[in-house]
Amino acid sequence: MGLFENMRTAPVSELTLREVVRISPDASIRDVVNTLRAAELGCAVAVDDDNKPCGLFTEAILRMLLAKDPACLDDQVADHLTTAFPWVKLTDSIEMVLDAMETKNFRFVVVVDENGKITGLTGQKGLMEYVAEHFPGEVMVQRIGTKHYPEQREGA
């Protein structure tokens, strides 16, 4: 099958899911930033006692907070979590990830199992990796490189 059918029928479990950075709602933003730096990720998830996601803290939230008040680093992250985050089930189609990102305008999508417990994180990178698998020639060009390869991860 090609990309078109795969996106509509293949389940989210076929995407490479990223490990979730779990945080306590009681943590300070400073602690969360340190955690995200160590994990090289731009999104942390607050989970409840049942391992269900209850809020997201993203680098976009951090940007807006910093711009408003740089002293926000000592705030509790609970005060700044977004609860309107996109999520999909492992058994949903990959197209649902695209829809979730578009509808909520997020680049991270929380993945939960049939019981609503968090199992991973996907989003733009996972989706792009899946799409790129269908263009091995283009991937080869990027890996061999007509241009330099960045020494540091973006960035963007």
């Binding site: 680049r107 990796e129 799409v131 790129a132 263009f135 991937v139 990027q142 960045p150 973006e154």
Partner: peptide, 17 residues
């Protein structure tokens, strides 16, 4: 191609190209 931009995102980890 558009596929090239998507491949940059996939391979290099860049979100903005």
């Amino acid at each position: 191609s558009a596929a090239a931009a998507l491949s940059v995102m996939a391979v290099s980890g860049y979100r903005h190209v």
